[in-house]
Write a protein that binds this DNA or RNA. Structure first.
Lengths: 341, 341
DNA sequence: AAAATTTATGCAAACGGTTGCGAATACGGT
DNA sequence: ACCGTATTCGCAACCGTTTGCATAAATTTT
């Protein structure tokens, strides 16, 4: 019953020719006679011959596989980005293997090592928030394996990068709050280790400054998930001068903040407005009121990362790297605009 | 700068011994002298030697990789299940490659083929809802590649399976609605092609029957995403005798139904109760009121699937297969119980 | 008819590692 | 001094495929 995978040698044996001839016949090499080619191809089809990718990889030193490392696939942003990578990869004949770092530095290092041991042709990564040492990624570069950063990039390493206008997106979000008449705008920012956190915070600060609002450090706390968003929003609401709006580093923090605001008996957006970042479509239209957010083109980010990888392998001598910066879009919903309730 | 990966041959050349000796030294083979071992291991470490998995796979005919095919990683259930698979796989020294079928039969077939060409040691799959022909999976079995189904299984194929008590879970959900006093209970069921849909529907029907409620076919419609859940709930609400409760095949359909109910100006759960299936934690506690649901142990399902795979490879002569059935848990929230609002 | 060229195929090495078997050396026992 | 036995290592084959080169036969050129 067990039908072992048929190899080129099986075909060769059955036709009483050499494996070399079979190999050439299958790829339509001009040296091989029409007659032989026909016989080989027919037998290959009838036996359902499938080339052994392992052997191919060993021989060609190429696996036609690219590794993608993300913190967690459960997040809408990352799974969309992965789908984007897959789209370009499949088109170019590449496979994609997905690794989750679970926001753990050690796991990320382990991921990199397995990908390297499996000789992937390239690595696309969005780094864990707990990664501060980048030697595992420098090793990737040193080994000549193409490396592309997306979203959560590392500035210490020269490589292709795909990011969004984090600062501008954040600026627009806060500007929108100001335009809506909010005066005491808080920010729940992400871990300082991530450039995206720093940039979004900078956008927040710039928007305040440009609009003549003094920055109150008490309105700036850190949070990077629902729980901490909830807890720190609670703290913000206990200030003698509580904020009347909050911009959060991502949508999950915003969800936590909304919970805290509702529990405090305050109305959104009348008493406190909330705006997130990323526009996780699984949740922004679910919470009441619908959450305003800064949409990132996640799929396109993945696509672009894939394209940069392809560019690097076709143009491997070039040592200049691109930093592609994509635009964000401000999505206004009920959480910041009562007209949209 | 480019540090090509160092091979066993490099080490052999530097120490002026044969590759065979290096290989044996590295795996502490008793034939090799302490002195040689020490030299080899030290050099290997200093050169940061990493065995080439490709070569290993070719030689041993094992890749230590298992392929997992799911419809879409974006869903909480599937990403949790994947994490479960990874947990057991990593512990046993296996890698996991994830494929998305995107609920497309063609893509699923393509996924199976790439996995086979890459000679994975096993395939774990939750089939697409558009898969009605299973020859691609029969091929997997015929080739002697261990196959494990989880959640969305196929009855035509003899293989290990991991499922939950879908019927019982559905029964309990509907029983709960009945206990809460609801009389006209609708069901938005999934595609008939999936056994889980059929079982959940059966559980619904059984619960009605066992409690002396006549089944009204007008209260049974199909829906498998937010949009269709919304649309078909709307239809249900237009019936002259509208339902006062609805049990949906999954949480996203429930979300759509909730939207329709709210738009109709009806109160949840006073006018209409809603209960979903799966307990997608990203959303059940987000929607207002919080959604009751039948929780599936997604992580454990993945873990178990991984364990069944391991069992099959260590015990490859056995041709008896297990069907592991895990329990569900009824999670009662505000959408079915006003006491929980 | 001899030489040159084309046509069609096979040999063997290579990719990187493993492993059965044989061989060389050293050592102990008689 | 001789034999048996460890000890330590290398040779070569193998996994499946590709490819430079050689080779043989067939064909063309001179």
């Amino acid at each position: 019953m067990k039908t072992r995978q048929v190899t080129i040698k099986d075909i060769a044996r059955q036709l009483d020719i050499s494996p070399a001839t079979v190999s050439r016949a299958l790829k339509d090499h001009p040296d091989i006679s029409k007659h032989t080619k026909k016989a080989v191809i027919e037998l290959a089809n009838s036996l359902n011959y499938q080339p052994n990718s392992i052997a191919l990889s060993l021989r060609s030193q190429k696996t036609f596989t690219i590794g993608v490392i993300v913190p967690e696939i459960i997040h809408f942003f990352f799974s969309s980005a992965i789908s984007g990578v897959e789209a370009t990869a499949y088109k170019a004949g590449y496979n994609v293997v997905i690794c989750q770092s679970n926001e753990s530095y050690e796991r990320e290092v382990a991921n990199v090592n397995t990908l390297l041991n499996n000789r992937v042709d390239g690595i696309l990564i969005s780094v864990s928030k707990n990664t501060t040492d980048f030697s595992h990624l420098k090793k990737v570069v040193n080994m000549g394996v193409p490396l592309v950063f997306f979203d959560r990039i590392c500035n210490e390493i020269d490589a292709h990068k795909v990011i969004v206008e984090d600062k501008k997106g954040a600026y627009n979000a806060v500007k929108h709050l100001i335009d809506q008449g909010y005066k005491h705008i808080a920010h729940l920012s992400g871990p300082e280790s991530l450039q995206i956190s720093r940039l979004r915070k900078d956008g927040y600060l710039d928007a305040l400054k440009d609009n003549g609002i003094a920055h109150d450090p008490r309105l700036l706390l850190q949070a990077d998930n629902r729980m901490s968003g909830y807890q720190n929003m609670k703290k913000l609401l206990q200030l003698e001068q509580r904020p009347d709006a909050v911009f959060t580093v991502n949508d999950n923090v915003a969800i936590g903040a909304i919970k805290a605001i509702k529990e405090a008996g305050l109305k959104i957006p009348q008493d406190v407005a909330v705006i997130g970042f990323s526009d996780d479509q699984k949740i922004t239209s679910l919470v009441e009121p619908h959450l305003s957010s800064v949409a990132q083109p996640a799929f396109q980010i993945g696509q672009t990362a894939g394209e940069l990888f392809l560019k690097q392998i076709t143009n491997s001598d070039s040592d200049s790297f691109e930093e592609v910066v994509l635009d964000t879009e401000l999505i206004i919903r009920g959480s910041t605009d009562s007209a949209k309730l």
